[in-house]
Amino acid sequence: MDNLKSFLTSWLTGYNMDPVLIGLIVTTAAIIGWVLIGSIFHIAIKIFISRLKAKERHMVRRQRTVTALILALIKYMFWFVMAMMVLKEFGLDLAPILASAGILGFAVGFGAQELIKDMIAGFFIIFEGAMNVGDFVEVGTFSGTVQEVGIRRTKILNWKNELRLVNNGDIKSLTNFSGKDSVGVVEFFVSAQFDLKHFTSDSFNDLLASYTKYEVITELPSFQGVVDSQLHNLKLRVIFKTQNQNHYSIERDLRRDIQIFIQNIREETKVF
């Protein structure tokens, strides 16, 4: 930028222009130059982010979260530098401005302790990998898919399309259900007089084996036996494993099929 200013000054001086006017033109040109550089950088960042989003399905969740954070920090830092350069072109001394900004930042930080707490918590959440974009988590009593992990707050979307903004400093406990296979559990009741041998029969085993039709299943359903007994009822359990967060619909289907199986046995044996 100094070379551009020197060139413009020499070129305009050759036209015998007023030095004050020359200085004004050179300063304006320098400011426009800094604004153009900032705009080009901003457009480049947007293009990079758009290409990044196009490839999100092929990226690791951790990479997406950290990359978005770094790009945001770079953008804000660059525009801060651009603002300082523009002020410098007006002939302002940056040292007092930066010193005042430091004092002001300390005062604001002292009065915004909650904000600082959220930011510190956000850094720990991101760099410790507690959760990433796309993870299914539970924060307090709210559970859903992480849409964005920011420095100050996290956005979580549940199955009702309700978006909750949670301040990072308010996250005292976090349950992350992503990363490993999900366990599906189907529990059902039969009477104490019901013959449990039906659940080790070939027909029931064929029912469980039929769930190979679901590609997301990683471990076929298996009968676990009696998990609780009451005066007139027995509680039984079947478990299976699926790819992460794909067990809900299969639980519903398996619960329906087991109830149909039990109903058929009841009609045959007349034991309810």
Rank of each mutant, 00 (worst) to 15 (best):
Q113S: 14
L115T: 14
L115H: 12
L115S: 15
I116T: 12
I116Y: 13
I116E: 07
K117H: 05
D118L: 07
D118G: 08
D118V: 06
I120D: 05
I120N: 09
A121L: 07
A121E: 07
A121I: 07
F123Q: 13
F123G: 12
I125A: 01
I125E: 00
I125V: 08
I125W: 00
I126H: 03
I126K: 08
F127H: 12
E128T: 15
E128H: 13
G129Y: 07
G129V: 08
G129R: 08
A130C: 06
A130V: 08
A130R: 13
A130P: 01
M131R: 05
M131S: 04
N132Y: 04
N132I: 01
V133Q: 03
V133E: 06
V133L: 02
V133F: 02
V133W: 01
G134Q: 06
G134L: 06
D135V: 04
D135I: 04
D135P: 08
F136Y: 13
V137T: 11
E138R: 14
E138K: 15
E138F: 02
E138S: 09
E138L: 06
V139R: 01
V139Q: 01
T141H: 14
T141W: 09
F142V: 10
F142D: 11
F142A: 09
S143M: 01
S143K: 10
S143T: 01
S143I: 00
S143P: 00
G144V: 05
G144R: 03
G144N: 04
T145S: 06
T145H: 02
T145L: 04
V146W: 03
Q147L: 15
Q147T: 12
Q147C: 13
